Computed example of a mutant assay.
Amino acid sequence: MILFVGGLVPRLTDARKELRRTQIAEAAVRCFSRNGLERTSIADISAESGLSTGSIYAHYRNKADLVRAAAREMLHRRADTIGGYAAADVPPGPDELLARLTAAIDPVHARVGVQTWSEATTDPAVRDIVVDATDRMRAMLHDCVTAWLVKVENHEPAPARERAAAIAHRIMALYQAELLYTALRTPTGESQ
């Protein structure tokens, strides 16, 4: 506990800490989208979030840590969506799955995603994040396509898993192409 004039100030609860981390990560994503990863400073994120620089450093070690948090947050959003599709009584087929994913693309997230891919070509820590996020999303797509092949197309599970791998790979590639297209066609500061 920290001593404060007139008494003790309670520590942040775990839930409050997580909300603060999310607030900071969302501010970072907005800054990254507007200014680019390289040109965004912790001071920019501080101003965007309304929090002190010290508060940001209390939650994140550095900007790279914020990039990782932003990548994880975007992946979690996709994971929840894709997981729901796979668990449905009638999972969407590959074309419908891709259509749903591309319809949900946020231009801000698309710009940050493309910038993160660029950073991944020169920064091993960012490359690890991008490769992990891509592999995890492809695995989720694989699960969803497998569920569709088994539940809708009536394939046996083992052959369905094998066939789903190539389909999931193509869906992932087309989704990434759509992210790039969205990032390039939507001017900074505008939404889709």
Results as ranks from 00 to 15, higher is better:
H155L: 09
A147N: 01
T121C: 07
V5R: 14
G36Y: 00
W148H: 15
A177T: 08
R11W: 09
Y85C: 04
A166G: 12
A15H: 12
V114C: 03
E119L: 12
E162C: 11
H142A: 06
I42Q: 10
S49Q: 01
A25P: 00
Y60L: 03
D44A: 06
N35D: 13
A103S: 11
R61D: 09
A177R: 07
L51H: 11
R68V: 04
C144Y: 02
D135Q: 13
A25Y: 07
G7S: 05
G50M: 04
T122W: 09
G113S: 11
D135V: 06
E26N: 14
K151A: 04
G113L: 03
E73A: 14
D65V: 00
A173S: 14
D128F: 06
I167V: 15
A120D: 02
A183F: 03
E38T: 13
H109M: 08
V130A: 11
L174Q: 15
G6V: 12
R21S: 06
I167W: 01
A15M: 06
L180M: 10
Y85R: 06
S52H: 10
D14K: 14
A69Q: 01
R68L: 08
V150M: 08
T40C: 01
I56A: 04
Y85A: 04
K63Y: 15
H59A: 10
M1W: 10
